[in-house]
């Protein structure tokens, strides 16, 4: 066997091994989301703080930013301040709505979290975890942007901080609210 053949075999084997490794143990956040570009599910549930029923139907025709979070999630704490900043930046736009979805949590702990870190937009409870499954959620935090037609236009797994925040506000939300196509 020539030296070239040996090197080729080694490279092919390593490539296959890395593919299998990525497939079996890779980080799910790098998997292309299948829901982007599809109609968002209609969702409803009680408000975390008041217990009053909330439904996505109330926000029909608006750009909705949906953020899945939990009080036990460390990365959610990291992004919380930025989420409040994002809401402050866009809250006056008549077509903008922001909604938190509290995932796999206990109500007292979720309420205490909101009290401690602040809350300026409504939060819905995902009582049985079915909402998260409807949105194809892997873990928290995950953020979705739904356009005026009810189509999911963007998904991000992980905290909304730094460049992610800039990309979300400048390239996704601003164009959608202006009625133009978002850029990634």
């Amino acid at each position: 066997m020539t030296r070239t053949t040996q090197i080729t075999i080694l490279v092919v084997l390593l490539a296959l091994l890395s593919l299998f490794y990525q497939g079996l143990w890779g980080d799910p956040r790098h998997i292309p989301p299948v829901l982007v570009g599809t109609q968002a599910p209609i969702f409803q549930g009680p408000d975390v703080e008041s217990g009053e029923p909330l439904s996505s139907e109330q926000f029909k025709g608006k750009v909705i930013l949906v953020n899945f979070w939990a009080s036990w999630c460390q990365e959610c704490k990291v992004e919380h301040e930025d989420l409040l900043r994002l809401h402050e930046e866009f809250k006056d736009h008549p077509e903008f709505v922001m909604l938190g979805i509290n995932y796999q949590d206990e109500v007292p702990k979720a309420r205490a979290y909101l009290k401690q870190y602040g809350s300026s937009f409504p939060h819905m409870r995902d009582v049985k975890g079915a909402l998260a499954i409807d949105f194809g959620v892997y873990g928290v935090p995950e953020t979705f942007v739904i356009d005026q037609q009810g189509v999911i236009r963007h998904k991000w797994i992980g905290p909304i901080v730094g460049d992610v925040y800039t990309n979300l506000t400048k390239n996704i939300l601003t164009p959608l609210l202006k009625g133009t196509e978002p850029t990634t």
């Binding site: 079996l24 143990w25 799910p28």
Partner: peptide, 23 residues
């Protein structure tokens, strides 16, 4: 199971797998 990755949702003890079984 999307959070434990090498198990199916029947065998997994993860809360998400449990919720998926419920669905």
């Amino acid at each position: 199971c999307t959070v434990c990755q090498t198990e199916n949702i029947w065998e997994s003890g993860a809360p998400l797998a449990h919720q998926m079984r419920d669905v």
